[in-house]
Amino acid sequence: MEERLKSFKKAVDQTVFTKVEFRPKHRQQVHKQLQVLSLQQTILSMLTESKSGTEITQMLHVRGVEQIVHNEGMIYSILHEAEQHGWLSARWESGVKYYQLTKLRKKQLLQDNAHENLSLKELILGVRMNVD
């Protein structure tokens, strides 16, 4: 089986990817998109319980997430987009907006990965946090 995969990879490399070229500008765009997706996953993993944008920002600073330094507005863009997708519910309380994963989003994550024995945070982050 392994030999077949090597042959397949060689065939693909010789045909499909021979003329693919990533220019520095394209690499930067891809890198930036990956950073935003990673940040989005990190933020969503924090919202199994209700939190305000300020609390999320503080937690990200404590974790040392560098993407948000001098760009805290990115957090609110991600929160707004997730809310528009129906992944988050939001409520106002004493002038502060609190965010939390919707029940539907939690249920979808758990159903999509029912065969795995992962926690909700592990599903969102896409990593295994505890080893049995």
Rank of each mutant, 00 (worst) to 15 (best):
F17W: 08
L5V: 02
I124E: 00
N130D: 11
V131W: 11
D112V: 06
G73D: 09
I75T: 01
I43S: 00
T48C: 05
Q67H: 07
T102W: 06
I43N: 00
T42W: 10
E116H: 13
M1S: 15
K25L: 12
R23V: 04
L37R: 07
T57Q: 10
S77D: 11
G73L: 10
Q111E: 15
S89H: 02
K25E: 10
I75G: 00
Q111H: 06
E2R: 14
G53L: 08
R91G: 07
V20M: 07
R128C: 10
L118Q: 12
E122D: 10
E2Y: 12
E66P: 01
R27D: 00
F22D: 08
G126A: 05
M74S: 10
E116M: 14
W92G: 04
H26W: 01
R27C: 07
H61A: 13
W92Y: 12
L5T: 00
R63N: 14
K106A: 06
Y98A: 02
K97E: 05
F22I: 10
V12D: 06
V96S: 07
A114Q: 12
K97T: 04
L60Y: 01
V62S: 13
H26Y: 06
R4D: 11
K51N: 15
V131K: 11
K25N: 13
S77E: 12
Q29S: 13
R4Y: 12
G64R: 10
S77N: 14
G73N: 06
L44I: 11
I75Q: 02
I68Q: 00
Q40L: 09
L110P: 00
T18V: 13
L123C: 08
V127G: 04
V69L: 07
V127S: 12
K10L: 13
T15W: 06
K107S: 10
K97G: 05
V36M: 08
W92A: 04
Q35A: 10
G64I: 05
K107N: 15
N117H: 08
D13L: 15
V96M: 09
V36T: 04
S77R: 12
E2K: 13
E83H: 06
R23E: 04
A82S: 11
T54M: 09
Q67M: 14
E55L: 08
Q33F: 15
L5G: 01
S50E: 12
V96W: 03
K107E: 14
E55A: 09
R4M: 10
